[in-house]
């Protein structure tokens, strides 16, 4: 096995382990490169027929390219897609101008909370990676969340080898992170090898491209000429700009991510 095969095989093992333990499970698809790769690996784990729903948390501020991609591939890959929206907060006019922390927390975390309750989900598959952010580097593959969604990062359970914790108190849920051990570069090499379709916002146009995508209100492109997967890989091998440099929620304060995540943010 080569390195990408090893990464993929471990992820498939984790996904299958999660489904074996929790039938009430769903995959969170932000339609970015990481969760699209996770979706790809998950399709492989279940031989093309994913036996659980795929959730898109829709803040309504996503790029139009994201919505187009969602429509096309939900159909092509025959996904059971659930769209999770905090309609009440949107009705009351929640938007980034009210404060980025509040906006992320309300339109993403709260929306997710409602969906988890509605479908009584016990586990969520998420595509976070350790190299993305220092706080995410502290995560476990199987990470419990309390009923009120809190992440007790000061007292995480031990996790040895691939013997993941499987039991939770009924009101809790697990965040499961099958891509935790991948790096940004690994993801792009995998996209290249597997020819995974990807939202075109990642490819440079007029000297700019997005390295990380989310809401159009809070994402800025970086300077780049990389307009193909191959060129992106080349760029990443030498860059000193961090992946999330265009993401507003990381910037407000050094600990915004920690605070958001402890409240249940992805």
């Amino acid at each position: 096995m080569n390195y990408l095969d090893e990464l993929e095989s471990k992820s498939i093992y984790i996904i299958r382990e999660a489904y074996n333990r929790f039938k009430k499970i769903a995959l969170l698809w932000s339609i970015g490169k990481d969760s699209t790769s996770l979706l790809w690996v998950t399709r492989k784990a279940f031989f093309g027929k994913i036996p659980f729903p795929i959730i898109h948390i829709d803040t309504s501020f996503k790029f139009k390219e994201i919505y187009e991609f969602r429509t096309r591939y939900a159909k092509e890959w025959n996904l059971n897609l659930l769209i999770s929206k905090n309609e009440a907060a949107l009705g009351e006019g929640m938007c980034p101008q009210r404060g980025k922390f509040e906006c992320c927390n309300t339109l993403k975390t709260e929306a997710l909370k409602n969906t988890i309750q509605e479908y009584d989900l016990k586990a969520l598959l998420l595509a976070i990676r350790r190299d993305e952010h220092g706080i995410r580097a502290k995560e476990r593959y199987f990470s419990p969340r309390t009923a009120d969604f809190k992440w007790n990062y000061q007292n995480q359970p031990p996790e040895l080898w691939d013997l993941y914790r499987s039991k939770i108190v009924s009101e809790q849920h697990f965040r499961i992170h099958p891509m935790l051990h991948w790096t940004e570069l690994d993801i792009w090499k995998y996209i290249q090898r597997e020819k995974i379709p990807i939202v075109n916002l990642y490819f440079a146009k007029r000297g700019k491209r997005y390295r990380s995508i989310g809401c159009h209100t809070c994402c800025l492109p970086v300077d780049s000429r990389a307009n193909t997967v191959k060129k992106i890989i080349k760029e990443l091998e030498t860059t000193t700009v961090s992946e999330r440099s265009g993401r507003a929620q990381d910037k407000e304060n050094a600990y915004t991510m920690q605070k958001l995540r402890s409240l249940g943010y992805m």
């Binding site: 350790r130 190299d131 220092g134 580097a137 502290k138 990062y153 000061q154 995480q156 051990h181 790096t183």
Partner: peptide, 8 residues
């Protein structure tokens, strides 16, 4: 250091 972390 409270928790383990991984760096590349």
């Amino acid at each position: 250091t409270i928790d383990t972390t991984q760096i590349f």
